[in-house]
């Protein structure tokens, strides 16, 4: 699917380097496995096992569960009670952000990690809600796709740290969409770099397609509605303060976006969605997501260095 150009070969070479990075996250595969399953099929013991992969995680979960965000009557003292307080979904979110935090050294984060996760969790949540409202058959898969769609931003931060700082600075300045700015400055986007890592990590094919095509609907494989769904969810998030930390000054007619008819082909209910109302509900997500991410990343709770 991807043609080999010099820029592409260079990119591949740089991404290859990622494999030699110390913390190829051991927790990732079982975690993704868990994320793909509906909540009622998940056993508590599996989650406990997952949490125990990293000693630091347990302490962090307990601290988050006992933070004012989750006003508990009595402090959570065991992993189990922390899991009950936070809920499986939150645990998964925290584990995932933690495993990427370990992957990327602090000085290599070009996008502020809190901003990145706010966007990723926000997009995940919006994609799941969106999926439910239009009767897409697998909302949890939509959540996972939303969560991982911007993996390439991590790749670019790691492999192109300095150039990527320039890209971000330019995008902040111009208010242009990040992918356009990447294309202009780097010659490729986080979609192209993200999918290389996604394939290396053997993420599910449908997720790899979302990573690769979510900014290029016209060329996307027509068989995977998740691409269009994540594309639209991503746009919504970016216009509701869950973007990359800057405002993109443009008006977006989602229903005129090529992703709209594409998604409608798979989910006819899209034609009747009350988008204005959904957008107002988004504001509630924004509050929730911001609180969660702030709790994960608040200095008192930060563990990894």
């Amino acid at each position: 699917m991807t043609t080999t150009t010099p820029a592409n070969a260079e990119l591949r070479k740089r991404v290859e380097k990622l494999r030699s990075l110390p913390s190829s996250p051991a927790v990732l595969q079982p975690l993704l496995d868990l994320l793909r399953r509906p909540p009622d099929e998940i056993e508590l013991s599996q989650v406990v096992q997952l949490v125990s992969y990293e000693k630091t995680i347990t302490a962090q979960l307990l601290r988050i569960a006992n933070s004012p965000l989750y006003a508990r009557a009595r402090p959570a003292e065991s992993i189990q009670s922390a899991i009950f307080t936070l809920g499986i979904q939150r645990i998964e979110d925290i584990l995932l952000s933690n495993c990427f935090s370990n992957l990327v050294p602090r000085d290599k984060w070009v996008v502020d990690p809190a901003v990145f996760w706010r966007h990723s969790f926000g997009c995940a949540l919006v994609c799941r809600e969106f999926a439910e409202r239009i009767d897409y058959y697998d909302p949890d898969k939509a959540y996972l796709a939303g969560l991982l769609h911007d993996l390439g931003i991590i790749v670019n931060s790691l492999a192109y740290t300095d150039e990527y700082r320039t890209v971000l600075a330019e995008a902040f300045q111009s208010g242009r969409p990040l992918d356009e700015q990447e294309k202009q400055t780097l010659g490729f986007t986080h979609c192209e770099s993200g999918v290389i890592l996604g394939k290396t990590w053997q993420l599910p094919e449908a997720i790899c397609e979302v990573i690769e095509w979510h900014h290029d609907i016209e060329h996307a494989p027509p068989t995977n509605p998740l691409i269009a769904l994540v594309h639209l969810g991503d746009l919504l998030c970016r216009l509701r303060g869950l973007g990359y930390g800057y405002e993109e000054w443009r008006a977006i007619d989602l229903a005129a976006d090529p992703a709209w008819p594409e998604l409608a082909r798979h989910c006819p209910k899209l034609a009747n969605i009350d988008l204005a109302r959904f957008t107002l509900d988004l504001d509630a997500f924004v509050v929730r997501i911001t609180k969660l991410v702030d709790t994960i990343f608040s200095p008192a709770l930060a563990l990894t260095g």
Partner: peptide
Amino acid sequence: FRLVHLPGTTTYL
């Protein structure tokens, strides 16, 4: 009218 999204607000076009 077409619902249009702008940063932090919506309008009809």
